[in-house]
Every structure is written in C-alpha cells, then in structure tokens.
Nucleic acid binder design. Structure first.
Lengths: 322, 322
DNA sequence: CTGTTAGCGCATTCAT
DNA sequence: ATGAATGCGCTAACAG
C-alpha cells in the first residue's frame, strides 16, 4: 500500500496509481493502525504534558498553546494532571498509556518532579524533558521556558509602593516549587530595598478558603495592620478579598490586594483583581517548540524567559491616611 | 518471558522462576513496549474523554471521577478538549493519538457530537460511546449518564417562588446542547405552573462577560424589572451579579441570582452563589463504569440519572416590597 | 511446568 | 514504477 507513504511518493508511483489507491482506501474506510505504526516507527508523535492541577485555567491555557504547536507538527498532547494529594495513579502510564516521545512538565513541586524525571518505573526515563515555569538548569531537562516572575513581583511591589503602601504582607503559597520560591525571593528583595517598608509573610495552601484564612491571620496579627496583601495567585487573592470584608474592611480603600495569573476568576470577582498576567499559552507553545527541537536533535537553546505584565484593576489604590 | 504474564502464572511457572525473571527484569530496567502490546492485543485499555472546555472545573471533576475508576481497572483516560470555536485539531487522533478502546463524551453541542460519533474519519467510528449529560437514547450510544437537571431547575424556581419572587428571568446559555435545553424546558414548565409568575429569558454566551451583558439587558428592558435571575451556570451568574451592581442595585436585596455547577468560582465571589451542585465526579465515574461494562459486552443498562442538590448561599433572598 | 514460535499492521528495503 | 519480504516487541498457543 503505497498510499500509506502518506505524502512520500515524490517521484515514486504514478499519479494514476496513487489516485486509485486513495479512492480504494476511502471506499473501504481504511484507517491506519496507530499501534502498528508506532511499533514500526518506534515513535508515537505524542507528548505528555504534566500539570499539577486542572482546576486552574492557567494550565488549560498552557495546554492550549502546547496543543496548537503540536498539531501544527503532527503531534498530539496528552494531559496528565499529576496527583496532588490523592490522585488517580502515581504513574503517567496508567493514566496516559500512550507511548510517549517526550514530556513537558509545568510548575511541578520538587518531589513530584523527581517522581517524573527520576523514577525509571515511571516510564519517562530517558525521554526528552522540557520544564515550564521551573528551576532553570535542572538536571535532565532538555530545555526550560520560564516566566519573568521576579519582574512581575517587582512590578507589583513598585505599584503598591508608588501608591503609598509601606506595610505589605505576602500571602505565600505553601507549596515547595520554584515558581513560588521565585515570588518569595523577589518580594523580599523588593521590600528590602525600600526605606520604611515592612514586609510580612503568611503561608497558605492553594485555595480560596486558605487564602481567606491566611489573610485573616495577616490582618488580625498584633501590631499595625498591613495596608496591602500581595498574593501568590488569584485564588489566594480572591480569598484575601473575602477576608478583608469579613473583618468589616473594604477592598481596596482599606486594604489593597494583588494576585498572579489573571485567571477568569480575576474578572469574575468584584472589584476585579489587580494581578500579574501570565502568558500561559505562549509558555505552552514555546515548551512544545523546545521539545520538538530536542526531538530533532537540536542543542538546547538558552532558557526562554517570557515577560509578564501587571494588569491594574480594581483591588489596588492608595492607602487610607494614617 | 513469562514475567510478562504479569499476574497470570497462577499455576504455570514456579515461584523461583518467577522471582528470577522479576529481578532480572528489574535489573535490566526492562519496560514493556506499549505499542507492541497494543498491536498484539488489539486493545489499548485507553478511553478518550471528550469535553467542550477545560476552563471550567466541572469537567476537571468529571475527568477525576473517570480517571479514578479507570485506574482501578487498569485503564487510562486521555482528555480531548473539543475545539470550541477555533481549536487545535478537528480530529481526536491528532490531539490524542493513542489508539482508543472507547469514548466518553460530555455535554457536547449537537454539531460537535456528530463530528465525534458520525464521522468515520474521526477515528472513533465503531467504538463504544458513552454520553454524559446528553440526550438519552441518542443513536450509537452504548450508555448515557445524566443529571436530573430538570429537577435542579425546579428546585431553583421553587426556592425563589417560596421566597416571594414572581418576576424571574432565565439567563440562558446560548449553546445548542441537551444540557441547556433541559434547563430551558424545566424553567418554562416551572414558571408556567405558577399563578402570577412571569418568566423572561435572555440568551448569553458562556462567559462572565456575556452573562453580565445579558443580565443588563434583562434588568434594563422596558416593563417591571425582574427580581430574580436564574442563570444556566456559575459563570453566567457571576456576570449577572456584576451587572446588578453596575446598575446600582444590590445582590441579593434588589435582585436574587442563582447558578448551576457549583464551581470553585461560586464560593470565590461575594456574596457566595446560590447554585445547583452537580456531582461531576460521580458522573465521570459512572460514565467510565458504563464504558467498561460495554467493553465487557454487557448490555446497556438503563440510563443513569443522578440527583442534584440546590445549595443555598448568599445570592438569594426575599424580594424587596413592591 | 518451561522454551519456542507465529503473527498483530505497518514502513522500509530490496527485487523485479 | 511497483510488488514482495522483513522485522519492530509483544502475547497466546503449542511443543517439549
């Protein structure tokens, strides 16, 4: 079946024959068997995208970007939501049993990442791995594409300081991953450089509810109350806004709040969240491009760092006098 | 390699041999080749889950439920977010090129569904298909699992009517799928049965922004203003709340608002949404169980219909006098 | 109880 | 320009 040569009959078979085979195939409803093809070729043109959660549209966006460039190159992407807490299966292969050509991991916590990259039983051993939003230069990564989160945090603090805020508390995601570590370091650096500024920190799990509780702790702690809450993501920020109001205060007049990600949630709440917009699909797209390049044997490019943009909306304003 | 007998050596090989093979395999880092296995077996133990969107945690929950029961049965689930508007690829196989044993489709619009079930080029032809949240008894479906959405809508209207509302407008998703058609019919039926009640309807695309615009149209139309807005999902409800406030009115004192789904969003906004909680992971779990049963050659069970529960929170109250 | 073998459907190479 | 033969790695059936 020369037809299966797909588009490889440059000068091989005659026009007529090709046409004949084509129509015959269409007639019989012939469809190539993927398993056989994969076996023969030893490649599957499929990449695994490992994400920590599906309940966050940031990851939906990176998937979209990755799937777009994958499709353009005849690749498929299968999503593997890594078991956070209690997940379906600790092994990508039982959840996505396609044979894989490579893996892309986004924003993974360090221990989860070890499980993916290090464990030979995970089936990802020896596969090209590109990391998104993760520690650059990690062992075994063919490439890394990152966001300039440090700059984003700097933009947030600068914005707040320009507004006149001095007592700023960081509602920090209690997750041990690079993406949050960077925020923490950048926050500390930004606050440290400021005379008269006081930075606090309150850890919180990644949910609206935990953001609420952390913000309440921050707001009711002894000493002068912070006038601004810088949150590690939009969920936390939404929770922080609720905490502010439950204490009888107003957002943003009494307390300003900022987030990260610019999820759909950011414009669903009121007032709309001032937040750092992350170009998620661009991250996914570049990640897939890097994986494709690695598969082609290209040398790893210098780590990509994408700019981020502070989007000022309704949850920040100048602090009240005093 | 008797090892590959996985767990099939009940009385076949000796303990010692099995053990030897095991350790040898571990030693060499042997891993079975999925492509070869799939080719030989003609089955892949993989199901495709087709969803209309990833940006909605309802579908994340159905995935979780499906993946859980799949994992328990040695199956994998690959997610295919169907291209809504402009998607990656019109063909599941280019996005998820695993060979499939069956497909589960959730809440699909009718035209998208035709593409999945009817098009032989889609690669899903002849595969067992189970439909979630879709027209029961559709051609080609091995099973259907549905939510009792009509009862949910009835609960919503009853709740509102009990509170004293009479002018109720339905902010209806402008999507041609069964799931929204049911809401529409149930709303009409519920309102029709009430003396003195007036039901209106305003269509809206599935987003916060479009919910806002539809609600504004509903609230500013000539004639007496509705005192309650019944929305087809939580995104729409969040938008409706914003519209109410932009008109200088309050939620819920001036206008009550309800949603459907009970997304994370529902408790992120303020006041928290009164909404119909949908047991999404149960839907996913039952869907996968039904697919597994179909694969085992069991006759299709009677369509499952899962109960739903109205969760009363902060966006509904009695209407103001007059 | 254990070793050997055929063949799943495809892409490729070699022979016509 | 086209057909025939080979083998990818695995499992199931069969021979020892």
């Amino acid at each position: 079946m020369s037809l299966v040569l797909g588009d490889k009959w440059r000068g091989r078979v005659s026009q007529r024959t090709a046409q004949a085979v084509r129509s015959a195939a269409a007639e019989l409803g012939y469809r190539p068997n993927l398993a056989a093809r994969n076996l023969r070729l030893g490649r599957t043109r499929t990449a695994l995208l490992v994400v920590p959660a599906l309940t966050n549209d940031y990851f939906a966006r990176v998937y979209t970007g990755a799937a777009r460039v994958a499709a353009r190159n005849g690749f498929g992407v299968v999503l593997y939501p890594s078991p956070e807490g209690v997940g379906p299966a600790p092994d990508p292969f039982s959840s996505a049993r396609a044979a894989l050509d490579g893996v892309i991991a986004s924003s993974m916590a360090v221990e989860a990442l070890d499980a993916i990259s290090g464990d030979p039983a995970a089936g990802t051993a020896g596969l090209p791995l590109v990391m998104l939003d993760s520690e650059p230069g990690a062992a075994g990564a063919a490439a890394t594409v990152n966001l300039d989160l440090a700059d984003g945090m700097r933009q947030v603090v600068d914005h707040l300081v320009a507004l006149g805020h001095r007592r700023i508390t960081h509602i920090a995601a209690a997750v041990d991953s690079w993406t949050f570590q960077v925020r923490r370091d950048a926050f500390d650096a930004a606050v440290r450089g400021l005379s008269g500024a006081v930075g606090g920190r309150e850890p919180a799990g990644l949910s609206v509810e935990q953001g609420l509780q952390a913000a309440r702790r921050a707001l009711t702690a002894p000493g002068p109350r912070p006038t601004a809450l810088v949150c590690d993501d939009d969920l936390l920020a939404a929770g922080a806004c609720k905490a502010v109001r439950r204490l009888g205060l107003r957002v943003p007049e009494d307390v300003s709040v900022t987030g990260f990600d610019d999820l759909a949630l950011a414009t669903a709440v009121e007032p709309e969240l001032t937040t750092v917009r992350l170009p998620a699909d661009e991250v996914g797209a570049r990640g897939m491009a890097a994986l494709l390049a690695a598969l082609d044997g290209h040398a790893p490019e210098p780590a990509d760092v994408l700019p981020v943009h502070l989007t000022i909306r309704g949850t920040t304003t100048a602090p009240a006098e005093g």
